[in-house]
Design a protein around this nucleic acid. Sequence first.
RNA 1: GGGGACGUGGCGGAAUGGUAGACGCAGCGGCCUUAAAAGCCGCAGCCGCAAGGCGUGUGGGUUCGAGUCCCACCGUCCCUACCA
Length: 725
Amino acid sequence: LKLLKRGLVYRREATVNWDPVDMTVLANEQVIDGRGWRSGAVVEKRKLTQWFLRITDYADDLIEGLKTLDRWPEKVRTMQENWIGRSQGLRLTWQFDAAPPQAKAAGVENGLEVYTTRPDTLYGASFLAIAPDHPLAEQLSSDPRVADFIKLCRAGGTSEAEIEGAEKLGLDTGLSVVHPFDPTWKLPVWIANFVLMDYGTGAIFGCPAHDQRDLDFARKYGLPVKPVVVPSDADPATFDVGAEAYVGPGKIFNSDFMDGMTVEQAKAAAVSRVESQDQGKGATVYRLRDWGVSRQRYWGCPIPIIHCEACGPVPVPDDQLPVVLPEDVSFDVPGNPLLRHPTWKNVKCPSCGGDAQRETDTLDTFVDSSWYFARFANPHASEPIDKAAADKWLGVEQYIGGVEHAVLHLLYARFITRALKDEGMLSVAEPFTGLFTQGMVTHETYKSVEGEWVEPDCIDFATESGVRIARVKTTGEQLVIGDIEKMSKSKKNVVAPEGIFETYGVDAARLFVMSDSPPERDVEWTNAGVEGAGRFVHRVWAEFDAQAEGPAPAFDDSDPAALDLRKATHKLIGPVTDSIERFRFNSGVAKLYEFLNVLKGHPAAGATPAVQAARAEALDVLARLINPFTPHLAEACWERLGKDGMVVDAEWPKADAALASDNEVTLPVQINGKRRAELVVAKGADSKAVEALALADASVSVHLAGLTVRKVIVVQDRIINIVAN
RNA sequence: GGGGACGUGGCGGAAUGGUAGACGCAGCGGCCUUAAAAGCCGCAGCCGCAAGGCGUGUGGGUUCGAGUCCCACCGUCCCUACCA
């Protein structure tokens, strides 16, 4: 209601995707190949009065704000920028040669307004085209030819393949308009199926030479094609567009006052000429539409509005908020239970006291997810948002989610956060200052010969003559092994976690997901992989279990085996810590595996006191380092060591710098970039001395035989490269 | 059509411009066992008996040195779309 008062909420009739089986509006994302994602019914276009949030008010701000999100993936920022789709151009009205009688009813008595980003090509215009649902087209549909054509256009599907292959269709209305720069030049007005009502003005001017769609259309209907931009390396006299429109940069020609200008210069010149003639104005247009939030569903936040015949839509008074959904609803028939509930919707008008009805549409779930993080700052506050708490916690420093939310949740939340900031309820404009988009868990898919998806749990696998075979456990029916896809209920390639937890444990499952791939990438779920993680869990436990109880002996670094283990321990801390901070969990896990192998090389059985001491230290560090990866195991290990409290509360280990660094390094010696020898030298050894050592090395001199050394590059503690020929 | 990402062993993947293939999976060999499983120890990019050679999609370039940087191409995946 606060957004409503701010003018950010409005109601209008809109064309929506209507699922006739589930009897609800679907978002564009929920329409797959023209069918409802759940019902599979062919989705209809329907006009419904819907509530909208004015996200377009924030279009510029949302684009500008992207520049501040330097801890967001470039990809997501690009997607949002493209989605908002700001373009700079010109709105231009073309006067009718002779206005039709329907012009007034269509609201175009002053002419047809078009939007273009290419005013520089105005002299290449050859026709005007309006969308089939443009008001003028609708007014003209008393003509059966027009009515039939509009019907034909609507029949066209919305699926990708249909749009891809769709033929350009047009109908000449017989009307004509006058060119803004030449009163003697008349252009025909067409209705065309490729013009969209909900972008720009729903009308375009066609410039076939410099737009592929216009060219296809012009070729089909025999309309003129007049080039007005020529690439700098082409001759205007012979330049021909052929079958491909020229959309690149170049010089303007055939264009009177713009001749010789660059495309950019001509755009500016055309805009100022049109503006001086008072026929149009430079304009910014966005691809972004306002956000339709009405849903004909029960499970949603009620829209706090009461509809009164006399007063229109009236906000629910504050003291009656929140509107609570009724619980005695039935889902036995499709459609919105709120609409058929016998009493819930019937209320008195807060304004006039007369009979009125509640709004039965509910809000899109994305409305709730657009501000929950502000509520989470203090979920017990009596007000929706505790501003002091929100100020303390927001913006969210590290947000994690799938990339599928790039232009849905992540855009909506940025919009609502800005609106709440303007309302004074929040102080930040950006809800999430850091974003990490994690990958999905995927699994192989299996299909029966009839094309039915089959769950992995019902399948036995075997290898027959080198080929992997999948069969249904109960019937033995052979299955087709399909692609590895995102786990989804519809494809039945979901592996229920409970079974895995029972067999391998929660820690093994968690460890596998983290160790398999970097987290931004998809993970293919495999039983073998989880087994590997399970082995690690058991091996770690075995080491703790084998450790002698009681206080550890004192360190003795003169024992080479003990020192070896202590060094490995202290060398482990840095990389594991780093891997966590950099979200490179798979590398961190690899380090832990590596360390476990070292630890196993210093077994508890028969260990010297020095090794026992080193092991005690190693286990102490290991328990803490594995805690983020395998928390349950870590606690059990911690307890086994006889430590107080929980390892989750224990301090993160710090490496002893002296033990973590070596005083000797092994340097590869390259000759002309190929490794020929290795040299062990003191860390930080002088370059000249290292060079001398390298040149004196026996295996180096073998490879240098007959060559003259031209140059020796010594990168301290890294590498030696000898250039010789 | 537009935008983005990515190409490294049989597989998942490591690698601040500095020894490519860490670690794991699958595989192979051995130990243990009456036997198997588990476990433990070892081998393992490709060609070659070896010496050695070749290797990060392809072709160029920069560099003492390129998986990494630059250019072109090929391929795969994702997003988006008759957006004027």
